[in-house]
Write a protein that binds this DNA or RNA. Structure first.
Length: 466
RNA sequence: GGCCCCGUCGUCUAGUGGCCUAGGACGCAGCCCUCUCAAGGCUGAGAUCGCGGGUUCGAAUCCCGCCGGGGCUACCA
């Protein structure tokens, strides 16, 4: 993507601290960071906390945590500072107020004393008459007297609003269809379509990369920037939305996959999640599907971004996560597994790593495979022959080095003597040790357990006392 | 309702007038490998390209209409 030389690239994300860290925030942050790094630009984090009713400071911390987990770190933000701060909208109230005063002085905004009820009635009236609703502009010409509570409305000038979307090309909206919208609420806080462009302009944002839900908001914001006499961002990019698996919009209630922290809890690797997200709405035009961040910085481009929303698919995410896990070294896998296996010491986790690698798709899957190491399974009841083979195995194992290869060799001599397939010997052992029919390869299943514990579990099912 | 965006296998997608009897990936099925489960290898099923009209010698690709989905239309962001 060619970028004009005139000003250094500055991009931003502007999440609202109104709940858990959002998947969409992660996705938008990723595209912004890629673009920033590709152009030697700056990535800004701004907190859009103008909804007094829903914002909570702890939610801001959760956003930081989620972004840090993914490695999507910002250059300027509320916690880091920077040349164009403050970066929290609630701390920029005077900025919005000053700009609003200027707009009013220029006749580009005006106070509105209408009550919510009156506006509601206007809207219903328009609806009943099947007429597209636009604010009546009553307060522009003859505001009601003797009221003290007011909002400030933007005086929409009319005309075409044009801008460049890096994904869709030239966009054009008829602002005659847009009513005078509120820019300052009666609680003195700014609305989104006002605070956002004021901040984008004063923070010298050059490229606005955000979700598609903001495409229709862009003309509102551009009008504000124009009215203030600021330079507009060079371009916008509206990324496709991430839809629920059934094609509907994701909702916090119905779709837990919206919650970023869920992925960490389930054991998705941050780099795998990022890889999946970038593929949801973009492709390189080649068959490559696994990308490092640096690779993305090199090859990502907005002209290969999808225009329509993409459905979230756990299966594909799981596959990608598995690919990343398999690509990890044993040491690294063990390190990442550690928080998921608090019952085990590091050495044990490390010894299990090779056997786990191709068997788990998420880190948390390791628990099912290894929980026999800290819980005693109920002993299965075996028939005489099987119990006999277990006894033979105990005998063969007694003096063997407690490592998978040695264990394996010892067991094979028992298999050979039995004249039966290996499973006839291995499965009873597996069940005796784990209580399950599925476990890591039998040599690992044995060797991961302390030798005495393993032998005592075998003894229990073989009907011998140790 | 108005404005805007979108519509190719179940899902993510390639495709920009002939190379498409529509390609890849995930998932699914079968086979091979194999101590279980995976991983890996191979094979296969799966899309009349939302529908209907045009334009053209020729359309998934261009045009129009319709239908469907999504977004915005808030003193939410």
């Amino acid at each position: 993507m060619a970028v004009s030389e005139k000003s250094p690239v500055r991009v931003r994300i502007a999440p609202s601290p109104t709940g858990f860290a959002h998947l969409g925030t992660a996705s938008t942050a990723l595209y912004n960071l890629i673009f920033a790094r590709a152009n030697g630009g700056t990535f800004v984090l701004r907190i859009d906390d103008t909804d007094v009713g829903r914002n909570r400071p702890e939610y801001e911390q959760i956003i930081y945590e989620g972004l840090h987990w993914l490695g999507l770190d910002w250059d300027e933000g509320p916690d880091k500072g920077g040349p164009v701060g403050p970066y929290r909208q609630s701390e920029r109230l005077d900025v919005y107020k000053e700009h609003a005063a200027r707009l009013i002085a220029d006749g580009k905004a005006y106070r509105c004393y209408c009550t919510a009820e009156e506006l509601d009635a206007e809207r219903k009236q328009a609806q009943a008459e099947k007429r597209p609703y636009k604010y009546s502009r009553r307060c522009l010409t003859n505001p009601p007297q003797g009221r003290s509570e007011f909002t400030i409305r933007f005086n929409v000038p009319g005309g075409e609003v044009k801008f460049t979307d890096m994904i869709r090309g030239e966009m054009s909206f008829d602002s005659g269809l847009i009513g005078d919208f509120i820019i300052i609420k009666s609680d003195t806080y700014p609305t989104y379509n006002y605070a956002s462009p004021v901040d984008d302009a004063t923070m010298k944002i050059t490229h606005v990369i955000r979700g598609e839900e903001h495409l229709s908001n862009t003309p509102y914001q551009l009008m504000v920037i124009d009215a203030l006499g600021y330079e507009r961002p060079q371009a916008y990019a509206h990324m496709p939305l991430i839809l629920a698996h059934d094609g509907s919009k994701m909702s916090k209630r119905k779709h837990p996959e919206l919650n970023l922290m869920l992925y960490r809890e389930k054991g998705y690797l941050p780099e795998a999640l990022l890889n999946y997200l970038v593929l949801l709405g973009w492709n390189p035009g080649t068959s490559q599907e696994i990308f490092s961040f640096d690779e993305l910085v090199r090859i990502f481009s907005f002209d290969r971004v999808q225009h329509g929303g993409a459905r979230f698919d756990w299966d594909k995410l799981n596959w990608i996560n598995g690919e990343y896990i398999r690509a990890l070294s044993d040491d690294e896998l063990a390190r990442r597994l550690k928080p998921f296996l608090p019952q085990l010491d590091e050495a044990t986790i490390r010894r299990a790593a090779p056997a786990l690698k191709t068997r788990i798709t998420k880190l948390a899957d390791a628990v099912d495979l290894l929980d026999y190491l800290w819980t005693d399974p109920p002993p299965p009841s075996l028939d005489q022959d099987a119990a006999g083979r277990v006894r033979a195995a105990m005998e063969a194992l007694k003096d063997v080095a407690w490592e998978p290869p040695a264990v394996h060799d010892a067991l094979m001599t028992v298999v050979e003597k039995s004249g039966l397939g290996p499973n006839k010997t291995f499965m009873p052992i597996r069940q005796a040790l784990t209580g399950k029919k599925i476990s890591p390869p039998i040599d690992y299943t044995l060797a991961l357990l302390p030798k005495e514990v393993a032998l005592s579990r075998l003894a229990k099912v073989a009907g011998v006392s140790v």
